[in-house]
Design a protein around this nucleic acid. Structure first.
Lengths: 160, 160
DNA sequence: GTTGAAATATAAGTATA
DNA sequence: TATACTTATATTTCAAC
């Protein structure tokens, strides 16, 4: 699906505030509320808008410590990869993960209570797994996400 | 602020779907709509709920390639750190960044059009900066975020 | 894009523990 | 005194035009 300027504006506004009322959304994008409603629905159905998520203060839900765990797999077989991939997705401590090229195969962003929790978790969920050859854990001092969109509509190919 | 089970339930529901209507939110949490409204407002004001953001398909906004750039600073002075930190926050290509302990100081998650864009961006925004001593760029095959909450209310200290 | 009915969010007032 | 519920009002959504 190709986005025009108005679609891009809607997406941008919802990225900053997913709970923006449709009326205000429409006004800021310079279109009628009904048009905004239909466009947003189309953007959802076409898979441009994937979902709406609340951002939560880590400390409030018991996350006192965050770390980035670099994981190197034992072999690069499809079977091992799929197995570890599935494992990652069911770990509550995993906030996000990156499957990357290079010596390390995964970068895993984890959120835990404290250092004791991190030690136990890293051991049980990474080191002791048969898929894993080696891990390296880095403490995260600060993590920040950018809610601004990285490109304008004219920068991207295939945008009207 | 300490969360009870209902607060935690509300936060969990809004994490999965930030646009869940208040009425349905209340029903699922087992409370009256007005109560849900007030609790959510308190959670926002107290800084537990930090915001609501739409998740967008990268390709739809012109991001054809993602990479993780490890950045090592020239020195560990407060001045250099603050300067680079501020720099990171104004780059449209930066999707997120981690300030970490270890040999590398920052892990920067970037989204770009293509490899040419990545090369130009890495050079201009990292390599050529006076704060930066060394960078290493890893291609990201896949990135996935976990929308489930990492802990239950009873696991976290200070929760009722 | 506009309008109006239905659904929903919000505020005020009331009860309850 | 806090928190939750009920009712009433305002806003928003959404479909027909």
């Amino acid at each position: 699906m190709t986005l025009d300027r108005i679609d891009f504006e809607l997406v941008q506004l919802l990225r900053k505030n997913a709970r923006l009322p449709n009326k205000e959304l429409a006004e800021r994008a310079g279109i009628a509320p009904s048009t905004a409603l239909e466009r947003v629905r189309r953007l959802r159905q076409s898979g441009v808008l994937l979902g709406y998520h609340a951002e939560i203060a880590p400390i409030a839900i018991g996350i006192g410590l965050q770390a980035m765990v670099s994981v190197r797999l034992a072999r690069h077989s499809r079977e091992l990869l799929d197995s570890f991939h599935a494992h990652l997705q069911q770990l509550p401590e995993v906030l996000a993960f990156y499957h990357v090229a290079g010596a390390d195969d995964f970068l895993v962003h984890v959120g835990v209570r404290d250092s004791a929790h991190l030690r136990d978790f890293a051991l049980a969920s990474f080191t002791e797994r048969h898929e894993v050859a080696h891990i390296e854990t880095k403490l995260i001092f600060e993590f920040r996400r950018n809610v601004e969109l990285p490109t304008g509509p004219l920068d991207a190919p295939g945008l009207a």
